[in-house]
Amino acid sequence: MKITFDIDCTPQEARAFLGLPDLAPLHDLYLERMKTMVTEGLGTADLERLTRTWMPGIADNLEQWRNSFWSSKPTGG
């Protein structure tokens, strides 16, 4: 015997039925932040925070890495 249920509801209704939180306000805030970053660009603090998150090995020595990068002299032609 096989029983099938077809439930017609929106994703928001399904989340509410299952007791999951409504993340729409958080999503809207995130989108607004992304729009701001795209239109205004990344600041130094934002870049450092992203580096610490995405590349933890470099982030530990970020200041040393940055200083050695800027103090290096070009080579070649």
Rank of each mutant, 00 (worst) to 15 (best):
T4Y: 02
F5G: 03
F5R: 12
F5S: 10
F5I: 14
D8V: 14
C9F: 07
T10Q: 00
Q12C: 01
Q12S: 12
E13A: 12
E13N: 00
R15Y: 01
R15V: 01
A16N: 01
F17G: 05
L18Q: 06
L20E: 09
L20R: 09
P21N: 08
D22M: 03
D22W: 04
A24D: 12
A24V: 10
P25D: 00
L26V: 10
L26W: 07
H27L: 12
H27M: 11
D28M: 09
D28G: 06
L29H: 05
L29Q: 09
L29F: 04
Y30R: 13
R33T: 08
R33N: 08
M34I: 14
K35A: 15
K35I: 11
K35H: 15
K35V: 13
T36L: 08
M37T: 05
V38N: 08
V38I: 14
T39W: 02
T39L: 09
E40R: 06
E40F: 02
G41P: 00
L42F: 14
L42W: 10
L42K: 06
G43S: 15
T44R: 14
T44W: 11
A45R: 11
A45P: 00
A45M: 11
L47W: 06
E48H: 02
E48C: 03
R49L: 11
R49W: 08
L50S: 05
L50W: 07
T51C: 07
T51A: 06
R52C: 12
T53E: 11
T53K: 09
W54L: 15
M55G: 00
I58M: 08
A59M: 04
A59L: 04
D60W: 04
L62C: 01
E63Y: 03
Q64R: 13
Q64I: 10
Q64L: 12
W65H: 04
R66F: 12
R66H: 13
N67Q: 15
S68Y: 04
F69D: 00
F69I: 08
F69R: 09
W70E: 10
S71T: 07
K73R: 15
K73C: 04
K73Y: 03
K73E: 10
P74R: 03
P74T: 00
P74G: 01
T75K: 14
G76V: 05
